[in-house]
Computed example of a mutant assay.
Amino acid sequence: MIRSVIRGTGSALPKDCVSNDELAARVDTSDEWIRERTGITQRYIAGEGETTGTLATAAARAALDDAGLTIADIDLIVLATATPDNTFPATATQVQSRLGGAGFPAFDVAAVCSGFLYALTTADAMLRTGMAKRAIVIGAETFSRILDWEDRTTCVLFGDGAGAMVIEAQDVTEDGPGIIASRLHAEGEHCEMLYVDGGPSTTGTVGHVRMKGREVFRHAVVNLAGVLGEVLAEAGCEASDIDWVVPHQANLRILDATARKLGLPMERVVVTVDQHANTSAASVPLAFDVAKKDGRIQPGDLVMLEAMGGGFTWGASLLRV
């Protein structure tokens, strides 16, 4: 069977690391308040000259190096972001150009925190149907540019960064590597619970992130547990078969509640929210790269990726490394 197999991963972070204490010096909050409610201790904030595109390019280049490939080996780029460099063209096209590529399709996907799952599933479908052979799938964000720094309930939650995977279509056996099963969902009726209050067609401005945290938490735990069950059922697996869960890094409480619903110990959940905060579409590939590079995720491991974001959108993918 044809599956999309991970050849390499990479990530990139801005230079400026901002601790909770540093944030508390300019926002009405405290290290204790942030840690207790979110588990976050620090985040990275993009500075001058650092954009979603530059971070995405750095992560993609690192993934290519990890795969032992060059841009000449790639024929597709899918980039997930809610904070593109420009309204258009797609930031993916700028990444393509900066890497020295041309001619093949490169486009953005907008599904906020679930964006990387949407991008990965899209690229996987294109690889399995023969539309491409190798793809770079990227999640990249500069959420700091759309935060209201007077709103302590949201501005403390987010950070900037990028993560990338190089995936390749391979003919494998049933127990071989690659993406095994994926499921995506959306419910637009809940958009007012997590959204940005601006846009080109409405206000003509970028706007700021607005969120009803308690309602988002409740939906996240229920929706994520549901989609994880769907993916496991499609793959014919049990939760106990999973070696690692790499979740969207939104809030330590959500990660813990989701793990408990699956009956999995937190020791098998990759947690980077304490170091990176919520990097939206970048959080899943960024966390995956960290766990792969530090040796937790090993070849042959069964790994579940999951995320939920504004829209609401949510999804999950089960893969073998």
Rank of each mutant, 00 (worst) to 15 (best):
M1Q: 07
I2G: 00
R3V: 08
S4N: 05
I6T: 13
G8H: 05
G8M: 10
G10L: 10
D16F: 12
V18H: 00
S19V: 10
N20C: 04
A24R: 00
R26T: 14
D28K: 15
W33K: 14
I34Y: 01
R35G: 03
E36P: 03
I40M: 12
T41R: 13
Y44G: 00
E48L: 11
T51W: 10
T51C: 04
L55T: 00
A59R: 06
A60M: 03
A62C: 02
A63Q: 03
D66G: 06
G68E: 03
G68W: 02
G68Y: 06
A72H: 13
I74N: 04
A80G: 12
T81P: 08
P84G: 06
P84T: 10
D85Q: 13
N86I: 00
T87V: 15
A90Y: 06
Q96I: 08
G103L: 08
P105C: 09
V109H: 05
V109D: 02
A110N: 15
L117K: 03
A119D: 00
M126Q: 12
L127K: 05
G130T: 08
M131Q: 14
V137C: 01
I138M: 01
E141K: 11
T142S: 09
F143C: 14
S144Q: 09
S144K: 08
A162S: 14
A162K: 03
V166W: 07
I167W: 04
D171Q: 13
V172W: 02
E174L: 10
D175S: 14
D175I: 10
G178M: 04
A181R: 06
R183Q: 11
L184F: 11
A186G: 01
E187V: 09
H190W: 12
E192N: 11
Y195P: 06
T203L: 09
V206G: 05
R210S: 11
K212S: 12
G226K: 12
G229R: 09
A233I: 02
G236E: 12
I242V: 14
V245P: 01
Q249L: 11
Q249S: 11
Q249E: 11
L252M: 13
L255M: 13
D256V: 05
A259T: 02
L262E: 02
P265N: 09
M266R: 12
V270A: 15
V271R: 02
T272A: 12
T272Q: 09
N278F: 08
A282N: 00
A282W: 04
A282Q: 06
S283T: 15
L286V: 07
K293Q: 14
D294N: 14
R296S: 14
G300Q: 07
G300T: 08
D301W: 02
M304Q: 06
E306H: 12
M308W: 10
G309N: 04
G309R: 02
G310Y: 05
V321Q: 13
